[in-house]
Design a protein around this nucleic acid. Sequence first.
DNA 1: AACTATACGGACCACTAGTCCGTTTGGCGA
DNA 2: TCGCCAAACGGACTAGTGGTCCGTATAGTT
Lengths: 192, 192
Amino acid sequence: MRADALRNRESVLAAAGRLFDAATDPDQVSMDDIAAAAGVGKGTLFRRFGDRIGLIRALYEQRGLRLRDALAVSPTRPAAEQAVDLLRAMLRFKLDNRVLTLALESAGGGSPYRNEAYDHWHAVLTGLVAEARGPQTADYLAHALLAAVRSDLVEHLRDWPEDRWHEGLNALVGSVLGDGGLSTCTSRSPVM
Amino acid sequence: MRADALRNRESVLAAAGRLFDAATDPDQVSMDDIAAAAGVGKGTLFRRFGDRIGLIRALYEQRGLRLRDALAVSPTRPAAEQAVDLLRAMLRFKLDNRVLTLALESAGGGSPYRNEAYDHWHAVLTGLVAEARGPQTADYLAHALLAAVRSDLVEHLRDWPEDRWHEGLNALVGSVLGDGGLSTCTSRSPVM
DNA sequence: AACTATACGGACCACTAGTCCGTTTGGCGA
DNA sequence: TCGCCAAACGGACTAGTGGTCCGTATAGTT
Protein backbone atom coordinates (compact mmCIF):
# COMPACT_ATOMS: atom_id res chain seq x y z
CA MET A 1 0.00 0.00 0.00
CA ARG A 2 1.44 3.31 -1.10
CA ALA A 3 2.18 5.97 1.48
CA ASP A 4 -0.36 8.48 0.21
CA ALA A 5 -3.00 5.78 0.15
CA LEU A 6 -2.37 4.97 3.77
CA ARG A 7 -2.41 8.62 4.73
CA ASN A 8 -5.72 9.11 2.98
CA ARG A 9 -7.18 6.03 4.57
CA GLU A 10 -6.40 7.41 7.98
CA SER A 11 -7.77 10.84 7.30
CA VAL A 12 -10.95 9.40 5.84
CA LEU A 13 -11.52 7.28 8.94
CA ALA A 14 -10.77 10.22 11.17
CA ALA A 15 -13.13 12.50 9.28
CA ALA A 16 -15.87 9.91 9.20
CA GLY A 17 -15.46 9.39 12.92
CA ARG A 18 -15.77 13.08 13.60
CA LEU A 19 -18.84 13.42 11.42
CA PHE A 20 -20.65 10.43 12.90
CA ASP A 21 -19.87 11.61 16.40
CA ALA A 22 -21.31 15.01 15.64
CA ALA A 23 -24.43 13.74 13.89
CA THR A 24 -27.65 12.70 15.57
CA ASP A 25 -28.67 10.29 12.85
CA PRO A 26 -26.53 8.03 10.68
CA ASP A 27 -27.84 9.27 7.39
CA GLN A 28 -27.11 12.86 8.13
CA VAL A 29 -23.61 11.86 7.09
CA SER A 30 -23.23 11.38 3.36
CA MET A 31 -20.26 9.98 1.53
CA ASP A 32 -19.72 13.39 -0.06
CA ASP A 33 -19.56 14.94 3.38
CA ILE A 34 -16.95 12.48 4.48
CA ALA A 35 -14.87 12.95 1.36
CA ALA A 36 -15.03 16.71 1.72
CA ALA A 37 -14.18 16.63 5.42
CA ALA A 38 -11.23 14.35 4.71
CA GLY A 39 -10.03 16.60 1.91
CA VAL A 40 -10.17 13.74 -0.50
CA GLY A 41 -12.01 12.87 -3.70
CA LYS A 42 -15.05 10.66 -3.56
CA GLY A 43 -13.41 8.06 -5.74
CA THR A 44 -10.78 7.56 -3.08
CA LEU A 45 -13.42 6.66 -0.52
CA PHE A 46 -14.96 3.99 -2.66
CA ARG A 47 -11.69 2.60 -3.94
CA ARG A 48 -10.49 2.11 -0.39
CA PHE A 49 -13.62 0.89 1.33
CA GLY A 50 -15.77 -0.53 -1.44
CA ASP A 51 -19.01 1.00 -0.32
CA ARG A 52 -20.65 2.88 2.51
CA ILE A 53 -21.06 -0.17 4.68
CA GLY A 54 -17.43 -1.05 4.14
CA LEU A 55 -16.34 2.32 5.43
CA ILE A 56 -18.64 2.15 8.42
CA ARG A 57 -17.49 -1.35 9.20
CA ALA A 58 -13.83 -0.32 8.99
CA LEU A 59 -14.41 2.53 11.39
CA TYR A 60 -16.37 0.30 13.72
CA GLU A 61 -13.67 -2.33 13.78
CA GLN A 62 -11.01 0.26 14.39
CA ARG A 63 -12.80 1.66 17.40
CA GLY A 64 -13.72 -1.78 18.64
CA LEU A 65 -10.12 -2.81 19.01
CA ARG A 66 -9.85 -0.95 22.31
CA LEU A 67 -12.59 -3.13 23.75
CA ARG A 68 -10.98 -6.28 22.49
CA ASP A 69 -7.85 -5.72 24.54
CA ALA A 70 -9.61 -4.42 27.62
CA LEU A 71 -11.68 -7.55 27.90
CA ALA A 72 -9.48 -10.59 27.71
CA VAL A 73 -10.95 -13.83 29.00
CA SER A 74 -9.56 -14.86 32.35
CA PRO A 75 -10.10 -18.51 33.24
CA THR A 76 -10.14 -17.83 36.96
CA ARG A 77 -13.11 -15.50 37.28
CA PRO A 78 -16.65 -16.90 37.21
CA ALA A 79 -18.15 -16.99 33.72
CA ALA A 80 -21.26 -15.06 34.69
CA GLU A 81 -19.19 -12.21 36.03
CA GLN A 82 -17.16 -12.01 32.89
CA ALA A 83 -20.27 -12.12 30.74
CA VAL A 84 -21.80 -9.23 32.64
CA ASP A 85 -18.62 -7.25 32.20
CA LEU A 86 -18.62 -7.97 28.52
CA LEU A 87 -22.21 -6.87 28.02
CA ARG A 88 -21.70 -3.78 30.11
CA ALA A 89 -18.69 -2.88 28.04
CA MET A 90 -20.67 -3.33 24.85
CA LEU A 91 -23.42 -1.16 26.26
CA ARG A 92 -20.89 1.48 27.13
CA PHE A 93 -19.39 1.25 23.68
CA LYS A 94 -22.75 1.69 22.05
CA LEU A 95 -23.54 4.69 24.18
CA ASP A 96 -20.18 6.23 23.37
CA ASN A 97 -20.45 5.49 19.66
CA ARG A 98 -24.15 5.95 19.31
CA VAL A 99 -24.50 7.08 15.72
CA LEU A 100 -21.75 4.85 14.42
CA THR A 101 -23.23 1.70 15.89
CA LEU A 102 -26.67 2.71 14.72
CA ALA A 103 -25.22 3.16 11.27
CA LEU A 104 -23.68 -0.27 11.31
CA GLU A 105 -26.59 -2.16 12.78
CA SER A 106 -29.25 -0.68 10.58
CA ALA A 107 -27.29 -0.72 7.36
CA GLY A 108 -29.25 -3.59 5.86
CA GLY A 109 -27.84 -6.70 4.31
CA GLY A 110 -27.43 -8.40 7.67
CA SER A 111 -24.54 -6.09 8.34
CA PRO A 112 -24.79 -6.11 12.13
CA TYR A 113 -23.80 -9.75 12.01
CA ARG A 114 -21.26 -9.59 9.23
CA ASN A 115 -18.26 -8.08 10.91
CA GLU A 116 -15.30 -9.54 12.68
CA ALA A 117 -16.03 -7.87 15.96
CA TYR A 118 -19.39 -9.57 16.23
CA ASP A 119 -17.91 -12.95 15.50
CA HIS A 120 -15.25 -12.34 18.10
CA TRP A 121 -17.62 -11.36 20.88
CA HIS A 122 -20.02 -14.07 19.97
CA ALA A 123 -17.28 -16.66 20.21
CA VAL A 124 -16.15 -15.35 23.57
CA LEU A 125 -19.66 -15.31 24.95
CA THR A 126 -20.41 -18.76 23.61
CA GLY A 127 -17.41 -19.99 25.53
CA LEU A 128 -18.58 -18.38 28.73
CA VAL A 129 -22.10 -19.71 28.33
CA ALA A 130 -20.78 -23.19 27.62
CA GLU A 131 -18.57 -23.02 30.64
CA ALA A 132 -21.46 -21.99 32.85
CA ARG A 133 -24.20 -24.31 31.68
CA GLY A 134 -22.84 -26.67 29.08
CA PRO A 135 -22.51 -26.37 25.31
CA GLN A 136 -26.05 -27.41 24.48
CA THR A 137 -27.57 -24.16 23.21
CA ALA A 138 -24.65 -21.92 24.07
CA ASP A 139 -24.40 -20.68 20.51
CA TYR A 140 -27.92 -19.33 20.41
CA LEU A 141 -27.85 -18.00 23.93
CA ALA A 142 -24.77 -16.00 23.10
CA HIS A 143 -26.58 -14.46 20.14
CA ALA A 144 -29.52 -13.69 22.37
CA LEU A 145 -27.34 -12.00 24.97
CA LEU A 146 -25.70 -9.84 22.36
CA ALA A 147 -29.11 -8.96 20.94
CA ALA A 148 -30.03 -7.66 24.37
CA VAL A 149 -27.64 -4.75 23.88
CA ARG A 150 -28.40 -4.01 20.24
CA SER A 151 -27.85 -0.42 19.49
CA ASP A 152 -31.38 0.48 18.58
CA LEU A 153 -32.65 -1.08 21.78
CA VAL A 154 -30.09 1.02 23.61
CA GLU A 155 -31.41 3.96 21.63
CA HIS A 156 -34.99 3.10 22.47
CA LEU A 157 -34.16 3.02 26.17
CA ARG A 158 -31.85 5.97 25.96
CA ASP A 159 -33.17 7.70 29.05
CA TRP A 160 -32.67 4.76 31.36
CA PRO A 161 -30.13 5.47 34.06
CA GLU A 162 -27.10 3.27 34.20
CA ASP A 163 -28.41 1.48 37.28
CA ARG A 164 -31.45 0.23 35.53
CA TRP A 165 -29.36 -1.22 32.74
CA HIS A 166 -27.09 -2.87 35.25
CA GLU A 167 -29.99 -4.47 37.06
CA GLY A 168 -31.39 -5.68 33.80
CA LEU A 169 -28.13 -7.12 32.56
CA ASN A 170 -27.47 -8.76 35.90
CA ALA A 171 -30.89 -10.34 35.88
CA LEU A 172 -30.50 -11.54 32.32
CA VAL A 173 -27.00 -12.91 32.60
CA GLY A 174 -27.74 -14.27 36.05
CA SER A 175 -30.67 -16.22 34.67
CA VAL A 176 -28.96 -17.53 31.60
CA LEU A 177 -25.51 -18.30 32.99
CA GLY A 178 -26.64 -19.43 36.41
CA ASP A 179 -26.26 -16.51 38.69
CA GLY A 180 -23.27 -14.89 40.42
CA GLY A 181 -24.81 -12.70 43.09
CA LEU A 182 -28.29 -11.97 41.81
CA SER A 183 -31.46 -11.50 43.81
CA THR A 184 -33.43 -14.30 42.18
CA CYS A 185 -32.53 -17.94 42.62
CA THR A 186 -29.74 -17.29 45.09
CA SER A 187 -29.24 -20.78 46.42
CA ARG A 188 -27.92 -22.72 43.53
CA SER A 189 -24.55 -24.30 42.92
CA PRO A 190 -22.69 -22.97 39.89
CA VAL A 191 -22.30 -26.48 38.51
CA MET A 192 -25.22 -27.48 36.30
CA MET B 1 -62.62 8.63 4.60
CA ARG B 2 -63.94 8.62 1.09
CA ALA B 3 -64.73 5.34 -0.62
CA ASP B 4 -62.08 5.67 -3.32
CA ALA B 5 -59.49 6.54 -0.71
CA LEU B 6 -60.28 3.41 1.21
CA ARG B 7 -60.20 1.31 -1.94
CA ASN B 8 -56.82 2.72 -2.88
CA ARG B 9 -55.48 2.18 0.60
CA GLU B 10 -56.35 -1.47 0.37
CA SER B 11 -54.90 -1.99 -3.05
CA VAL B 12 -51.70 -0.23 -2.08
CA LEU B 13 -51.28 -2.47 0.94
CA ALA B 14 -52.06 -5.52 -1.14
CA ALA B 15 -49.60 -4.55 -3.84
CA ALA B 16 -46.90 -3.70 -1.34
CA GLY B 17 -47.45 -7.04 0.36
CA ARG B 18 -47.11 -8.89 -2.91
CA LEU B 19 -43.93 -7.03 -3.85
CA PHE B 20 -42.24 -7.49 -0.48
CA ASP B 21 -43.13 -11.16 -0.47
CA ALA B 22 -41.58 -11.59 -3.89
CA ALA B 23 -38.43 -9.62 -3.15
CA THR B 24 -35.29 -10.95 -1.53
CA ASP B 25 -34.23 -7.62 -0.11
CA PRO B 26 -36.33 -4.77 1.26
CA ASP B 27 -34.87 -2.11 -0.95
CA GLN B 28 -35.57 -3.95 -4.12
CA VAL B 29 -39.05 -2.56 -3.64
CA SER B 30 -39.32 1.13 -4.42
CA MET B 31 -42.26 3.39 -3.79
CA ASP B 32 -42.69 3.78 -7.54
CA ASP B 33 -42.92 0.03 -7.88
CA ILE B 34 -45.62 -0.12 -5.26
CA ALA B 35 -47.57 2.74 -6.78
CA ALA B 36 -47.38 1.16 -10.22
CA ALA B 37 -48.36 -2.29 -8.96
CA ALA B 38 -51.30 -0.80 -7.11
CA GLY B 39 -52.41 1.15 -10.17
CA VAL B 40 -52.21 4.39 -8.24
CA GLY B 41 -50.26 7.63 -8.42
CA LYS B 42 -47.28 8.12 -6.22
CA GLY B 43 -48.87 11.11 -4.52
CA THR B 44 -51.60 8.82 -3.25
CA LEU B 45 -49.08 6.61 -1.48
CA PHE B 46 -47.49 9.47 0.37
CA ARG B 47 -50.74 11.23 1.17
CA ARG B 48 -52.08 8.07 2.77
CA PHE B 49 -49.03 6.75 4.58
CA GLY B 50 -46.79 9.77 5.07
CA ASP B 51 -43.58 8.10 4.07
CA ARG B 52 -42.01 4.78 3.27
CA ILE B 53 -41.75 3.70 6.87
CA GLY B 54 -45.37 4.61 7.42
CA LEU B 55 -46.43 2.32 4.62
CA ILE B 56 -44.25 -0.52 5.83
CA ARG B 57 -45.51 -0.06 9.34
CA ALA B 58 -49.13 -0.11 8.19
CA LEU B 59 -48.59 -3.34 6.30
CA TYR B 60 -46.75 -4.86 9.22
CA GLU B 61 -49.50 -3.97 11.65
CA GLN B 62 -52.14 -5.35 9.30
CA ARG B 63 -50.42 -8.67 9.02
CA GLY B 64 -49.63 -8.75 12.70
CA LEU B 65 -53.28 -8.67 13.66
CA ARG B 66 -53.65 -12.38 12.97
CA LEU B 67 -51.00 -13.13 15.58
CA ARG B 68 -52.63 -10.87 18.09
CA ASP B 69 -55.83 -12.90 18.11
CA ALA B 70 -54.16 -16.28 17.92
CA LEU B 71 -52.17 -15.59 21.07
CA ALA B 72 -54.46 -14.35 23.78
CA VAL B 73 -53.11 -14.56 27.32
CA SER B 74 -54.65 -17.35 29.32
CA PRO B 75 -54.25 -16.99 33.08
CA THR B 76 -54.34 -20.74 33.65
CA ARG B 77 -51.29 -21.88 31.68
CA PRO B 78 -47.79 -21.46 33.08
CA ALA B 79 -46.17 -18.18 32.11
CA ALA B 80 -43.05 -19.80 30.71
CA GLU B 81 -45.09 -21.95 28.38
CA GLN B 82 -46.98 -18.98 27.09
CA ALA B 83 -43.82 -17.01 26.62
CA VAL B 84 -42.28 -19.78 24.55
CA ASP B 85 -45.40 -19.93 22.42
CA LEU B 86 -45.26 -16.22 21.90
CA LEU B 87 -41.64 -16.20 20.83
CA ARG B 88 -42.16 -19.17 18.57
CA ALA B 89 -45.05 -17.42 16.95
CA MET B 90 -42.96 -14.31 16.40
CA LEU B 91 -40.21 -16.42 14.91
CA ARG B 92 -42.72 -18.04 12.61
CA PHE B 93 -44.09 -14.67 11.66
CA LYS B 94 -40.66 -13.35 10.82
CA LEU B 95 -39.88 -16.36 8.71
CA ASP B 96 -43.16 -16.01 6.87
CA ASN B 97 -42.78 -12.28 6.38
CA ARG B 98 -39.07 -12.19 5.94
CA VAL B 99 -38.56 -9.18 3.73
CA LEU B 100 -41.31 -7.15 5.31
CA THR B 101 -39.97 -7.55 8.81
CA LEU B 102 -36.46 -6.86 7.62
CA ALA B 103 -37.77 -3.71 6.02
CA LEU B 104 -39.38 -2.59 9.22
CA GLU B 105 -36.59 -3.45 11.58
CA SER B 106 -33.80 -1.91 9.56
CA ALA B 107 -35.65 1.19 8.49
CA GLY B 108 -33.73 3.49 10.78
CA GLY B 109 -35.17 6.01 13.18
CA GLY B 110 -35.73 3.41 15.85
CA SER B 111 -38.59 2.09 13.79
CA PRO B 112 -38.46 -1.50 15.05
CA TYR B 113 -39.54 -0.17 18.41
CA ARG B 114 -41.95 2.46 17.28
CA ASN B 115 -44.97 0.47 16.28
CA GLU B 116 -48.05 -0.64 18.14
CA ALA B 117 -47.38 -4.31 17.64
CA TYR B 118 -44.08 -4.11 19.45
CA ASP B 119 -45.63 -2.29 22.37
CA HIS B 120 -48.36 -4.86 22.53
CA TRP B 121 -46.08 -7.87 22.59
CA HIS B 122 -43.71 -6.19 24.95
CA ALA B 123 -46.53 -5.50 27.37
CA VAL B 124 -47.75 -9.08 27.18
CA LEU B 125 -44.28 -10.49 27.72
CA THR B 126 -43.59 -8.11 30.56
CA GLY B 127 -46.70 -9.44 32.25
CA LEU B 128 -45.59 -13.02 31.82
CA VAL B 129 -42.10 -12.31 33.08
CA ALA B 130 -43.47 -10.46 36.08
CA GLU B 131 -45.79 -13.32 36.83
CA ALA B 132 -42.95 -15.81 36.66
CA ARG B 133 -40.21 -14.01 38.56
CA GLY B 134 -41.55 -10.75 39.90
CA PRO B 135 -41.75 -7.28 38.39
CA GLN B 136 -38.20 -6.24 39.25
CA THR B 137 -36.57 -6.15 35.81
CA ALA B 138 -39.45 -7.63 33.87
CA ASP B 139 -39.53 -4.67 31.55
CA TYR B 140 -35.98 -5.10 30.35
CA LEU B 141 -36.13 -8.86 30.24
CA ALA B 142 -39.14 -8.64 27.95
CA HIS B 143 -37.17 -6.39 25.61
CA ALA B 144 -34.30 -8.84 25.70
CA LEU B 145 -36.53 -11.79 24.88
CA LEU B 146 -38.01 -9.97 21.92
CA ALA B 147 -34.54 -9.01 20.76
CA ALA B 148 -33.71 -12.70 20.67
CA VAL B 149 -36.01 -13.12 17.67
CA ARG B 150 -35.08 -9.94 15.82
CA SER B 151 -35.51 -10.39 12.16
CA ASP B 152 -31.94 -9.92 11.14
CA LEU B 153 -30.83 -12.44 13.70
CA VAL B 154 -33.39 -14.80 12.23
CA GLU B 155 -31.94 -13.93 8.86
CA HIS B 156 -28.41 -14.53 10.06
CA LEU B 157 -29.40 -17.98 11.31
CA ARG B 158 -31.61 -18.67 8.36
CA ASP B 159 -30.37 -22.19 7.79
CA TRP B 160 -31.02 -23.40 11.29
CA PRO B 161 -33.63 -26.12 11.41
CA GLU B 162 -36.74 -25.47 13.43
CA ASP B 163 -35.59 -27.83 16.17
CA ARG B 164 -32.51 -25.85 16.89
CA TRP B 165 -34.51 -22.69 17.28
CA HIS B 166 -36.94 -24.47 19.57
CA GLU B 167 -34.14 -25.72 21.78
CA GLY B 168 -32.66 -22.28 21.91
CA LEU B 169 -35.90 -20.55 22.75
CA ASN B 170 -36.71 -23.17 25.37
CA ALA B 171 -33.35 -22.71 26.99
CA LEU B 172 -33.63 -18.95 26.94
CA VAL B 173 -37.17 -18.69 28.21
CA GLY B 174 -36.59 -21.51 30.64
CA SER B 175 -33.67 -19.65 32.14
CA VAL B 176 -35.29 -16.28 32.31
CA LEU B 177 -38.82 -17.23 33.36
CA GLY B 178 -37.82 -20.07 35.65
CA ASP B 179 -38.17 -23.19 33.65
CA GLY B 180 -41.04 -25.37 32.51
CA GLY B 181 -39.21 -28.55 31.62
CA LEU B 182 -35.63 -27.47 31.00
CA SER B 183 -32.43 -29.33 31.90
CA THR B 184 -30.70 -26.57 33.87
CA CYS B 185 -31.81 -25.32 37.25
CA THR B 186 -34.66 -27.73 37.70
CA SER B 187 -35.22 -27.38 41.42
CA ARG B 188 -36.42 -23.85 41.90
CA SER B 189 -39.74 -22.63 43.20
CA PRO B 190 -41.55 -20.26 40.84
CA VAL B 191 -41.88 -17.68 43.61
CA MET B 192 -38.86 -15.38 43.84
C1' DA C 1 16.01 10.56 -14.83
C1' DA C 2 12.83 7.67 -16.78
C1' DC C 3 9.16 4.64 -16.24
C1' DT C 4 5.02 2.34 -14.61
C1' DA C 5 1.85 0.58 -11.37
C1' DT C 6 -0.88 2.76 -8.19
C1' DA C 7 -3.74 6.22 -6.56
C1' DC C 8 -6.25 10.44 -7.21
C1' DG C 9 -10.43 13.60 -7.98
C1' DG C 10 -14.61 15.20 -9.26
C1' DA C 11 -17.82 15.26 -13.18
C1' DC C 12 -21.15 12.10 -14.13
C1' DC C 13 -24.95 8.50 -13.86
C1' DA C 14 -28.97 6.00 -12.34
C1' DC C 15 -32.21 5.98 -9.11
C1' DT C 16 -34.82 7.20 -4.91
C1' DA C 17 -37.96 9.30 -1.47
C1' DG C 18 -40.75 12.88 -1.22
C1' DT C 19 -43.35 17.39 -3.07
C1' DC C 20 -46.58 20.15 -5.70
C1' DC C 21 -50.34 21.64 -8.08
C1' DG C 22 -53.65 21.43 -11.83
C1' DT C 23 -57.37 18.04 -12.52
C1' DT C 24 -60.99 14.80 -11.18
C1' DT C 25 -64.57 12.92 -8.34
C1' DG C 26 -67.26 11.17 -4.36
C1' DG C 27 -70.99 12.24 -1.74
C1' DC C 28 -73.96 15.61 0.48
C1' DG C 29 -77.54 19.33 0.83
C1' DA C 30 -81.06 21.51 -1.64
C1' DT D 1 -81.73 15.34 -9.85
C1' DC D 2 -78.41 18.62 -9.82
C1' DG D 3 -74.69 21.41 -8.45
C1' DC D 4 -71.10 22.16 -5.46
C1' DC D 5 -66.66 21.71 -3.08
C1' DA D 6 -63.78 19.37 0.09
C1' DA D 7 -61.24 15.49 -0.58
C1' DA D 8 -58.56 12.72 -3.34
C1' DC D 9 -55.90 11.92 -7.43
C1' DG D 10 -51.66 11.39 -10.51
C1' DG D 11 -47.42 11.97 -12.35
C1' DA D 12 -43.99 15.46 -13.68
C1' DC D 13 -40.59 17.43 -10.94
C1' DT D 14 -36.91 18.25 -7.31
C1' DA D 15 -33.06 17.53 -4.37
C1' DG D 16 -29.92 14.56 -3.01
C1' DT D 17 -27.76 9.87 -2.69
C1' DG D 18 -24.49 5.98 -3.42
C1' DG D 19 -21.56 4.50 -6.72
C1' DT D 20 -18.72 4.64 -11.39
C1' DC D 21 -15.30 6.13 -14.70
C1' DC D 22 -11.40 7.77 -16.78
C1' DG D 23 -8.02 11.33 -17.74
C1' DT D 24 -4.40 13.08 -14.70
C1' DA D 25 -0.83 13.04 -11.13
C1' DT D 26 2.54 10.83 -8.32
C1' DA D 27 5.20 7.41 -5.39
C1' DG D 28 8.75 4.52 -5.58
C1' DT D 29 11.79 1.53 -8.14
C1' DT D 30 15.52 0.49 -11.46
